[in-house]
Write a protein that binds this DNA or RNA. Structure first.
Lengths: 339, 339
DNA sequence: ACTATTTACGCAAACGATGTAGTAATTTTA
DNA sequence: TAAAATTACTACATCGTTTGCGTAAATAGT
């Protein structure tokens, strides 16, 4: 029942603890015959080193943390999938922490992680993270952070993102080409870099087409689904409603669908919709949803790979590096002009 | 940069290490004045105990593991959400491991966890877990396991499930009431208890209505989406196709939608569909998808709560207990007779 | 054949926190 | 007032591994 440890192994083998330890770690100090004997007995007795003792001694946790706003989210769950895969390959363990878009929770989590519980952190900040002091403090403790998607520009480290600015332009351009004259942008907060980029792409594309929108066409949504529903409902009520909607995140597009259903607004006839999304069922929606789809799995995978590249070398300092993966535009019914 | 430890704190305070340790743990052996002094300095110096040292000494990891087949899955991600919430409330950390429905990977993961890295495990087994020896071995090591949803009956512990048998009957009955004469059941493997129950409910309801189906109406799908696609396509091709489909898991219903689209089969006119699902967008699909929806968040939450009930009492033995939460039937277009 | 080197192992000190046992000094009790 | 009890602390062993150093025996070198 109780786990077997080095001391017991050593006694049975009639060797010292250190010999057994070194044999298991394949040290050159130990003879081949002894090594084999130790390995065999260790396997027989089902010995596995106590991670707390090793962690304490070597100051290595063999664990990384993933800090994200949500897990019940197609994008983040795919990213976690990619991360977990690479972690398993590297014999690492993955701790998961959810901020629920609450910056205070984010701060608390980072505080909890400061004491070397993890060798590194992969994170996407909350939509409200407009101040990075808790992150730079954390970094100062000597634990590397790598950001993916929702990055924090002020922190020097590796950042994995997609081409959000270009995608923002492309999505907007697509709506314009489909004859939209009045396009609204649904933002998730407006603090974080990813939103700025998507919005900039949107604004720039409007500008290029001489279609500058009034500021109220940028709707600042938040984490409260009901409030978002009301905001979008207000946007789509009355006669001054837009004929195109570019949702910066999936859930805002879903809410828009729901609002349209309630208000009996026809998509895409009355209003065309496109959004960033990793929804598997996008093509099965009514109407099928046009999306900019991020390579979520690969983003997670890449973030983890970069982390392990440094951890393997025992480097806790990760220089600035921007890795940009490409999103793909999937045009479906929701954004197309009916001909 | 380097984390401050008890020794440094003690030196600065001119106290012994043990005094500081006890003061921080609010021991009665320490005077109030000293306690305050220690607390203040600890906060000032941002001291947090080294988790490996504490873990080693107290034989407690303050960590639980969640072992599930997938995370990019609406059901499991919601369950994880519930688990993480309760873990945070209890000051616990959550390790996540994905089996990808691979029983060998599941075995490997359990092996990895045997060495007291975690205080407990919450798990949903793979669709192929037809042998529980790796799980009972694990339990023998003195680490409690609690199952949710995909339980293992042979292991004595707490199990959180939904009323799968009843739900299976209800879903089948609903299809019958909507005039289905030939209902197929899409199973995910057939090894695990949850599938047996859902299938039993289906078979029993058919029996009650004198509608026994031939064995080939139970389609044993697997983890390979393309193979599932082919299986379902075969089922729905030709004239001998069923007029009702009961999918035991969400992804099989999605695949069915895709097949129907390819084969130009009208849902619900030609074939009616209902499935177990936590898909947020079920009502936005074309046609909207009828579902049996499990209280996934609460299942995760409950599993975690039961775990902490025992961990708090330092009990590693969890007696058999079956906690059954209710699923809810959401009737939408995909399963209804058009009148 | 005698020293120099290598091989193969053991000893013991960490890593940081915890808790038992011990000890002065103070306070209480009979 | 002497003995007993309480208070407020310190010393030290311990959890299980890892690793630098020491050392005896075996081997190599001249």
């Amino acid at each position: 029942m109780a786990a077997v440890n080095l001391k017991q192994l050593a006694k049975i083998l009639n060797l010292s603890i250190s010999t057994v330890s070194k044999a298991l770690r394949d040290s050159h100090e130990i003879g081949d015959a002894t090594k084999e004997r130790v390995l065999a007995k260790a396997k027989e007795m089902d010995y596995t080193p106590n991670p707390f003792a090793s962690g304490l001694r070597r100051n290595k946790s063999k664990t990384i943390a993933v800090v994200v706003p949500e897990v019940a989210n197609n994008y983040f769950s795919l990213a976690i999938n990619g991360i977990e895969r690479i972690a398993q390959e590297n014999d690492y363990h993955v701790l998961i922490y959810l901020t629920h878009e609450d910056i205070e929770k984010e701060k608390g989590i980072m505080k909890h992680l400061e004491n070397k519980r993890v060798d590194g952190v992969l994170m996407s900040v909350t939509m409200n993270t407009n101040n990075q002091s808790h992150l730079s403090d954390f970094q100062q403790k000597g634990i590397p952070i790598i950001f993916f998607d929702r990055i924090c520009n002020e922190i020097e480290t590796a950042k994995i993102t997609t081409d959000d600015y270009i995608s923002g332009m492309n999505a907007t351009n697509h709506l314009i080409e489909n004859n939209c004259k009045d396009i609204a942008f649904l933002s998730l907060g407006d603090d974080i870099s990813i939103m700025q980029k998507r919005k900039s792409g949107y604004l720039e594309e409007l500008h290029k087409n001489n279609m500058e929108a009034p500021p109220e066409r940028v709707i600042k949504c938040g984490n409260d689904d009901e409030m978002n529903y009301d905001l979008i409902k207000k946007l789509l009520s009355g006669k001054n409603k837009p004929d195109g909607i570019f949702a910066s995140v999936e859930k805002l597009a879903i809410t828009t669908y729901q609002v349209c259903r309630e208000l009996n607004i026809n998509i895409p006839k009355e209003v065309k919709i496109i959004c960033f999304s990793n929804l598997e069922t996008a093509s099965l929606l009514s109407p099928s949803l046009s999306t900019i789809t991020q390579p979520a799995y690969n983003i997670g995978k890449t973030a983890a790979e970069v982390m392990f590249k440094y951890l393997d070398k025992n480097k806790t300092y990760i220089p600035n590096e921007n890795i940009v993966l490409q999103s793909t535009l999937h045009i479906r019914e929701s954004s197309q002009q009916i001909v």
